[in-house]
Design a protein around this nucleic acid. Structure first.
Lengths: 129, 129
DNA sequence: TTAAAATTTGATAATAATTACTATTACTCT
DNA sequence: AGAGTAATAGTAATTATTATCAAATTTTAA
């Protein structure tokens, strides 16, 4: 099935790519409404689902009730803050090595992949305290 | 707050510990009803939550809508089958090394921990095909 | 042991997140 | 432009989980 080019879809992906906050569907809905006030929440959900199926964005199924979405599809890692709940990108050199080992494992066992989520206090909460 | 010793709680934990299927609350509810037919789903949810808070069982927040619970609180890893959706324990020597590296990372960055979920076809689905 | 205090239960209602439905509107392709 | 397909807004439905509360059970401590 081919995706048509709708204004709604374009804005959704555009706004998501501007963010590094990994918004939930309803958070992005609020942002997108600034551009398209009459858009419905269902449209946001539908498009996020479609776009993640097509590999244009990432759907993050982390701890917590709500799914989150990420416009950055490059391989990277997430930290969920145990204090504020934010999901932030984490950049560590060690991850390369761990990633390599995990990929070896995945290959050897003919698996599909893995999902890793770190948890702890994020930088923002650390400095706030 | 101290937990009282109720029949319901005892059966819930007993039945959960017999399983290695990481049941959802409603799956366990069906099983527990064999022993206590009048038990309510709310009681199962409430106790699973309490027991996991007390560290007597594990609450697994993996991919998928429903939370799962594990009576085995020892450090081990899970594979979610992309075909049947089952969550199975995975025993691999490599995990020790990966676990060590991840724990080092967690320590160095003063994090709380990490959550890892492997995905692929489980043994049951492999042999069935 | 017994009565008051605390906790838990079953039953049910409420909530929250997501998905489904549908008539209408917008794209796409020739 | 016009037929065919896909998407939208608005709303209803669903699903998983949590909250509420009166009655029952368990614990505590005299």
């Amino acid at each position: 099935m081919k995706l048509s080019n709708t204004n709604q879809r374009r804005i959704i992906i555009e706004e998501l790519r501007k963010l590094d906050t990994h918004p939930t569907a309803d958070e992005l809905y609020i942002i997108v409404r600034e551009k398209i006030p009459q858009i419905s929440l269902g449209t946001v959900y539908r498009n996020l689902e479609l776009l993640s199926k097509k590999g244009q964005i990432l759907k993050l199924e982390l701890t917590g009730k709500q799914k989150r979405f990420d416009g950055n599809i490059e391989n990277h890692y997430h930290l969920r803050c145990t204090k504020c709940g934010r999901v932030v990108d984490i950049e560590i050199d060690d991850m390369l090595e761990i990633d390599k080992k995990l990929n070896e494992l995945v290959d050897r066992l003919s698996l599909d992949g893995y999902r890793l989520e770190l948890s702890g206090i994020c930088e923002i909460c650390k400095t706030e305290k």
